[in-house]
Every structure is written in structure tokens, then in C-alpha cells.
Computed example of a mutant assay.
Amino acid sequence: MKKINIAIIGAGRMGQLHAKNFEYFVYGANIKAVCDQEKALAQKLAIEVEAEVYSDVSVLLLDESIDAVVITTPVQTHKTFVLQALEAGKHVFCEKPLCLNIEDANEMYQKATETKKVFQVGYMRRFDKGYETAKQKISEGAIGTPVFIRSTSRDPGLPPVPGWGCFPEKSGDISFELCSHDYDSIRWLLDDEVERVFGQAAVLSSIKEKGICGGTMMNDTIALTLKFSRGALGTVEGLLNIKYGYDARTEIIGDEGVISIGQMNYIDVVTGTSEHKISLPTAPSFTDRFAEAYIKEGQHFIDCIFNGQTPIVGVRDGLEAVKIAAAVNKSIQLAAPVNVTGEMLYGSNISN
């Protein structure tokens, strides 16, 4: 059977995760090349997956044997590499978020539409068994009409500090870096678009790290309310550097019932000791919590290439998540509700 030859662009943590998943767990995939400006990093990963090494994306894309690229570089580089890959006739898997502004997202959307290549964005929650089941039950009307959704994301880590975590503009702050997963999953679960947002954010659990950064860094705590176009309401909360483990949960309330996804404990084991204490293990990181989902999203990408299908999470979904994240950041900046189109509800009009 012919395999889809893949090039990994970016050999950091996510590049390593995807490279090993595609090479060892995804049927029909072959890691042909690894590219990173840090050649030693690329070489290390390439040895593990028996691939060729590149340090220049432009040179890599000249290889006609490469069918698809997986882009796992810092978000500021996504647009450049996506457009180059599409121009070279490659299928594209791009890690989230798609980019940091609506203009770039629109340009990427237009190019993907023109080239008609398979384009998938790395929102792996759609491939998690719990989220998949919830989506099916909502579609079947198990809880009637959804009226409220609550999404929670908590991560024990921080972006590099000192490093790019000290500069919110390089990551889009917590709204883009952490909560874009929430934005995508709530749109998908409710099959509806977010119309209005009102957000607040602060550095609350990383005061020491903020000092290391010289007094400015990515916010580690965010809380926002949302209104959907068909009238449902929702909330999203995101926290970084909260130590106890990775925690992602979602609750959807309908006029006839409720669905709850996820739980704090990672493995369904409870330990009781002679000290009269009960403990439950939490997920060390998002790669543990969604390990199976990452493999399934990779398989979906390959299947879409073989079958000429459109991924269930494509470039338009990436664009819509960027729109929400940008509106949230504008709302935080102005301390006012903002329509996702960019209109502030109280005061003068603004643009994203």
C-alpha cells in the first residue's frame, strides 16, 4: 500500500509528538523528513523516526516525494509556512492556533480554498471519545435544545519564562495559547457561532515568574462569558501554572437534560490509605489527557488525503477560533463586551 510521505516542520515538543504518532500509530503514514532551524534538534528527531533532515523549509518543499506537511512551529511562523506549503502543492496539518490575527487567517483560508488541498487544524478535542460521544448525543436531541455551555481548561505549565512567555503579543496571550481549544470545541458541540464575548484576565498564580520577566508576561488566568447566535449562553475559564495537573472539562445544559465531559482524575483509580486519605491521579499534561485523540486526529488527516475528503476540523474552523480569540483580547483590553465581528457594545466602534 502506498503511504503518505509527511514532513514535520518544527522539531519541538509538538513536532516530536506528531512525528512519533504518524510514524508508529497512524496507518498509511510515513515520516519522510524533519525540518527545524535548530539542526541538532531536527537530527535527533529524524534519527528516532528514520527520516531525512532539513533546516530550510523552502528547500524541503522542493522535494516532490513529500505529500503533506505537519506544521508545529511557533504561531508567528504559521502563515508563512502554510502559504509556502500550499503553493508547493502539499496537504497541510497546522497546529493551533492558526495565527494571531484575522487578516492572516483570512489569507490562509483563501489560499487553502483556492488550492483545494486537505487542510486540518490541530484541535484534537474533537477526536476525544468523551467529546465525540457528547457531540452525538447533542445531535440526537438527548438533552433537548442546548441553552448553556461551560468549558474549563487548566494547565500546570507555563510557556517558556524567561522566553516568549514574557511577551503576550508573541503568543496571543492566554486567549490564543490556551483557550482556542475551548473556542473550537464549544462551536462544534453546539453547532453554532459565538456572537459576543466579555472577558477578564490577569496574572494571579505566576507572580514570581512575572518578576523574572521584568513585570510583563502572559496572563495565567482568564474568565469570559459568551453569547451564541441562536441565543445560548456560555462561559470559558482558563488557568495556567495551577500545579495539580492538566484538567479539561465541559458541561452542556439543555432544556431537557445535561451532558458532562471529563473529570479531574486522569485514570479511573482511587487510592485509600491507612492515613485516612483518598487520592485520585491527575493528568500530568495535555499530551497525556488527549493521547488517544492525537493519534485519531492524525489518522483522520491521512484518511482525508486518501479519500479526498474535507477534515471535520478545517481551515475555516481555525479562522473562526481566531475571530473569537481576537474579540476576547479586545474585550479584555477595553473592559467591555465585544461582538466577534469587532464591534464594542458600549462606546465607539472598534476593529480587530
Score class of each variant (00 low, 15 high):
Lys2Val: 13
Lys3Pro: 05
Ile8Trp: 11
Lys20His: 15
Tyr27Val: 00
Asn30Met: 01
Asn30Lys: 11
Glu38Val: 13
Ile47Leu: 14
Val53Ile: 14
Val53Gly: 07
Tyr54Ser: 09
Tyr54Asn: 06
Ser55Thr: 15
Ser58Glu: 14
Ser58Thr: 12
Val59Glu: 13
Leu60Trp: 09
Ala68Asn: 10
Val70His: 06
Pro74Thr: 09
Leu83Lys: 09
Leu83Thr: 07
Leu100Met: 03
Tyr109Gly: 00
Lys111Ser: 09
Ala112Trp: 00
Tyr123Ser: 04
Asp128Ala: 07
Asp128Ile: 05
Gly130His: 03
Thr133Glu: 14
Ala134Asp: 04
Ile143Lys: 06
Ile143Met: 04
Gly144Asn: 06
Thr145Leu: 09
Ile149Trp: 02
Arg150Glu: 13
Ser151Gly: 08
Ser151Glu: 06
Asp155Ser: 07
Pro156Arg: 11
Val161Arg: 01
Pro168Tyr: 08
Ile174Gln: 12
Leu178Met: 09
Asp184Pro: 01
Asp192Gly: 05
Glu195Gly: 11
Glu195Trp: 14
Phe198His: 13
Lys208Asn: 13
Lys208Asp: 15
Glu209Ile: 06
Ile212Glu: 12
Thr216Val: 10
Thr221Gln: 06
Thr225Met: 10
Phe228Asp: 12
Ser229Ile: 08
Val236Trp: 03
Glu237Gly: 13
Glu237Ser: 10
Glu237Pro: 00
Leu239Lys: 10
Gly245Asp: 01
Gly245Asn: 00
Gly254Ser: 08
Glu256Val: 03
Ile261Lys: 10
Gln263Trp: 02
Gln263Phe: 04
Met264Phe: 08
Tyr266His: 15
Asp268Met: 04
Thr271Phe: 06
Thr273Ile: 07
Thr273Pro: 08
Thr287Arg: 05
Ala291Gly: 03
Ala291Tyr: 15
Lys296Glu: 14
Gly314Ile: 04
Asp317Asn: 15
Ile324Gln: 06
Ile324Ala: 05
Ala327Ser: 08
Ala335Cys: 10
Asn339Thr: 08
Gly342Val: 02
Leu345Met: 15
